[in-house]
Amino acid sequence: MLSQFNQFLLNFSLLITSLLFAFLPMRNISRISPNSSIRIRLAVGLIASIIGALLVLNSISYDGAKIDLRLVALVTAYYYGGWISGGLTTIAIIGARFLVTPPGVYQGLILATLICLALLVTASIYRRFAAQTFKDYLILLGIGIGYSLPALYLLTDTFMRFLEMAFVYIIFNLLGGYVTFRFLRELRKHFQFVQTQQELALTDSLTNLANRRKLDETLADYDKHGYAFSVLIVDIDFFKSVNDEYGHDGGDVVLRQLSHLLATFAPEQALVARYGGEEFVVVLPDIAHREAERIGERIRTACADQHFVFKPYPPFHVTLSMGVASSDQGKTAFEVVQLADQALYQAKQTGRNKVVGYAYS
């Protein structure tokens, strides 16, 4: 029995290692379930198929039986991807079982095929009455084990050898299922934590807009790919007087309310970032210079008409000055921002509360 334990440990190690590397490409998907898109479920099925086939190809030969953790791969595929993922994994497992079957000895192959198909049908029926919980995962795994034990009995030479192998088989499949389920859950939590930290590193904490780092990364990417774009640099007029009259808390309220206004009036594909202090940058991909000026004018007008609220003070107004430049005016994206900044300076010097485009040279 010790040798069987050692061989199962190798199969178990193969399962966990394969899961770690195979699911890395799916780390940014927030939730995977039988209701996910077909593309995601096909990807889950492909991953589980590879893992299931590897487990079968490295299975333990015991009399006429091939013992491994393929049930864990199949149940996991169905649990996360439904019948599409489960069906792909079933085909892969049957194919791998055919490859390890000696010519003329097809009893084990036939039984393995029947077990996989029976489990797939049972899982499809069971899903109508179950949720996606750990209990349901274990029930499906237990059903698969129940289907496998009669086949294991038929393929072993004696009842004692069947009991010996059944004990190892049940223990390792339950252990493999438990560890797989917990491993994938913890892996998902880890990926979500890393993604959250990455998003926080690129987000301004006060306004929830993109921060300077995100802006620089975007501009560098535009330079790399040669994208056409325009830029608005937005500055709040006389923001110091807002802080003086309403305090820094009032100033923060203005920044947050203005951030919401910018995000609302900017096109969906635009990047709205806090540039620093009371300045903001709106990057407008595939927007020509004149259209960018019109977008800036709509934002300026909406801000001038908006009532900014900071209790217990009465509602008040703020105005904006803006500079506009486009990618055909500068050699690099960062130079375009500098040109927009020059246009902003001109807007401030000529009366504020206006949108000024950088003059074409």
Results as ranks from 00 to 15, higher is better:
residue 315 P to A: 14
residue 26 M to G: 06
residue 256 R to K: 15
residue 284 L to E: 04
residue 184 L to G: 09
residue 115 I to D: 01
residue 1 M to Y: 10
residue 286 D to F: 10
residue 224 K to L: 08
residue 92 A to M: 13
residue 194 V to T: 14
residue 350 T to V: 08
residue 118 A to W: 01
residue 39 R to M: 08
residue 36 S to C: 11
residue 119 L to I: 09
residue 37 S to N: 13
residue 337 V to H: 02
residue 78 Y to E: 06
residue 50 I to A: 12
residue 200 L to P: 07
residue 157 D to F: 11
residue 283 V to E: 01
residue 55 L to N: 05
residue 208 N to A: 13
residue 51 I to T: 03
residue 294 R to W: 14
residue 300 R to F: 05
residue 306 Q to H: 14
residue 94 I to M: 10
residue 42 L to H: 01
residue 273 A to H: 11
residue 183 F to Y: 14
residue 275 Y to Q: 06
residue 102 P to G: 07
residue 333 A to R: 09
residue 67 I to P: 00
residue 231 V to L: 12
residue 102 P to K: 05
residue 182 R to W: 07
residue 67 I to G: 01
residue 273 A to S: 15
residue 350 T to G: 11
residue 156 T to A: 03
residue 340 A to Y: 07
residue 95 G to P: 05
residue 260 H to Q: 15
residue 276 G to E: 03
residue 288 A to S: 13
residue 259 S to P: 03
residue 314 P to L: 04
residue 57 L to H: 08
residue 202 L to C: 06
residue 262 L to K: 06
residue 270 A to N: 08
residue 192 Q to F: 10
residue 262 L to P: 09
residue 152 L to K: 01
residue 62 Y to H: 03
residue 337 V to F: 04
residue 223 D to W: 11
residue 85 S to Q: 09
residue 244 D to T: 11
residue 217 E to M: 14
residue 153 Y to K: 04
residue 230 S to T: 06
residue 104 G to A: 04
residue 317 H to M: 07
residue 197 Q to K: 03
residue 338 Q to C: 05
residue 273 A to L: 13
residue 355 V to P: 05
residue 359 A to G: 02
residue 329 Q to P: 07
residue 44 V to D: 02
residue 36 S to Y: 06
residue 62 Y to M: 05
residue 304 A to M: 14
residue 84 I to V: 15
residue 47 I to E: 03
residue 167 F to D: 00
residue 351 G to Q: 09
residue 24 L to Y: 15
residue 288 A to E: 14
residue 159 F to S: 02
residue 123 A to E: 02
residue 35 N to Y: 15
residue 86 G to K: 03
